[in-house]
Design a protein around this nucleic acid. Sequence first.
DNA 1: AGCCAAAACTTAATCGATTAAGCACTGTTT
DNA 2: AAACAGTGCTTAATCGATTAAGTTTTGGCT
Lengths: 349, 349
Amino acid sequence: MTDQRRMTLKNLAQELGVSTATISNAFNRPDQLSPALRDRILKASKRLGYSGPDAKARSLRTGRSRIIAVVLTESLTYSLNDAVVGEFLSGVAEVLDAHGHTLLLVPGRGHASQPPGSANIADGFIVYGLMPNHKLLDELPAQRTLVTVDFDIEGYPTVHVDNRAASYQIAKHALRTLPKRPAIINLRLTKQACNGRMKPEHTLLPDTSTVSRARLEGFHRALDEHGIDNEQVPLWNIEENTFEVCSPVIAEILDQPLGQRPDLLLCMSDRIALAALTLAEERGIKVPEELRITGFDGIAEGQYRAPRLTTVRQDSAGKGRLAAQMILGRTPFAQQLLKTELLLGDTCP
Amino acid sequence: MTDQRRMTLKNLAQELGVSTATISNAFNRPDQLSPALRDRILKASKRLGYSGPDAKARSLRTGRSRIIAVVLTESLTYSLNDAVVGEFLSGVAEVLDAHGHTLLLVPGRGHASQPPGSANIADGFIVYGLMPNHKLLDELPAQRTLVTVDFDIEGYPTVHVDNRAASYQIAKHALRTLPKRPAIINLRLTKQACNGRMKPEHTLLPDTSTVSRARLEGFHRALDEHGIDNEQVPLWNIEENTFEVCSPVIAEILDQPLGQRPDLLLCMSDRIALAALTLAEERGIKVPEELRITGFDGIAEGQYRAPRLTTVRQDSAGKGRLAAQMILGRTPFAQQLLKTELLLGDTCP
DNA sequence: AGCCAAAACTTAATCGATTAAGCACTGTTT
DNA sequence: AAACAGTGCTTAATCGATTAAGTTTTGGCT
């Protein structure tokens, strides 16, 4: 009859003729009971198939679950295939793991009905690159500790990268080569979906703090300083940071007649830049002689290849680590701005 | 005084002069109370900052958390930077999301002290490519629903890929070109760590069901059929599927004197193959004329580039979807074997 | 022997929900 | 008019732990 019922702390206590408090202490505070008894308890739990205090009950009682939720911009399906997100998450995971916490992945926009649902079991939330008007943001702050990444919510701690400065820096570098026809390929910059050349009727995302807005401003400032009229620089837009979605747009850019085809592509992500590189190579367009390409992010894929991508590296893993440390209270809450680093590759020397 | 205390279902009930059961029903079973009262309750909870039943308490009471844990082979830090894992996870996430579940990431080997810890809050476990002798496996099965991926535990449902058949298939293809000096680059195949040329004293992993063992067997069978003595085919081994770890080994391979340098590299992963491709290009070695390279996995990075990688695609996302469906009980538990697909790229036409 | 602090346990309240069973009312059927 | 079946809501037991406060035991010291 003993091994029939599901093993709980209470049952185990009964079985051994001790109180539940003692069992609990055996698992959580070894100094509160004699080594002999503790040993007996641990052995018995192994024998009877009791694998320690139930996490659900413990989390209710203590109020802490040792789970941190990471809320991602996009569907998980997309996010998990993006190297930048992967790097970020690995940074988060590294710190959480070191402190005995685990990581719960929550999709920003999902198939599912309700947004948070079971997610509010988490002790804290790291919200990554959400659109500033997302409805999740109405629900979360009330709940508990919150750190935002790559965007701001008034008054909440943030970690992000100085996108404006970084894009300014790489554009400055690229413009030293005095391109005749620079073009910019944006990433999810328009309010309405637009996968291709941007037209006057496409309005930009409202919030200037958006990553893409900031990057564009950096590009534009550099162009300004070089006396190039921003109006004359064609803007293209990509809706999703994948090869599949990039390719047709880039093909359209590269297949323009020679006099119109750009000789410099300022891309808002490495993925876009790599797609441009691949399609250029396929067409026999020489990089960097006929076409210079710059990326943004500094993902491994762009560096461990030939030719190496010229880009600006943002420390995504570092962002993740910092965000995790903040949420765990190991680093004081603050508005943190991480530095970037210019990576001089071969695609725009 | 009202808004001072933390809002709970009980407090809300008191506030509104109804029973806790009714509040609970308002959130969970709309048909159990009049629409008017439900409306009043929902409005009040919004006003008083009550964001629905607490997930911790609910999960204790109901016994289900709507959380599925994915246990990964390696540290999360490494796993999340691997495209194959990313694809797998995105498949899992897609299905979980569609059914209102969230995904908890648990490292197989981590910094942390205890292995499962807070993970046992999950309703089910998807264990991905764990070494068959891992100690986690002693703890998990007792707990609850379990699906293994890319390895077996006696009697438990599994989804995996026919690695043997796939590697046989691609080796068969590669050998049609009658290479003079084929070589094999393995991935984590030896019991002792070995990053470089394998020597007689290196013993293979004990379990034949291991992914790497299976892939090697496929290679060997194909070589056999072509009358090539397996003893004569040099084996190299890579300890971690990253560019950083691959590079020195591959450099060593490619920098051998011409008569010894292989003219065919059968690689156990796309990442290895891509590293080989990059290093060959850097050295001016012509691919595929002087050196043929095959990969394994079929990650996007190998296909959206020039030259395209010749490889065999395993449907990682599909594996993830299937595993998730099984764990949610949407697909009958079983031993599932997924098909692979030969991708004829340019590196071994 | 007697006293007392420290060590080793126990008691019992509590965390915040869910849900079967029960009760009171309303309206319909015979 | 009595019986009956729904509605709409409440009562109260329960999920499996944690932990402050209290009680008994032990052993060291005078």
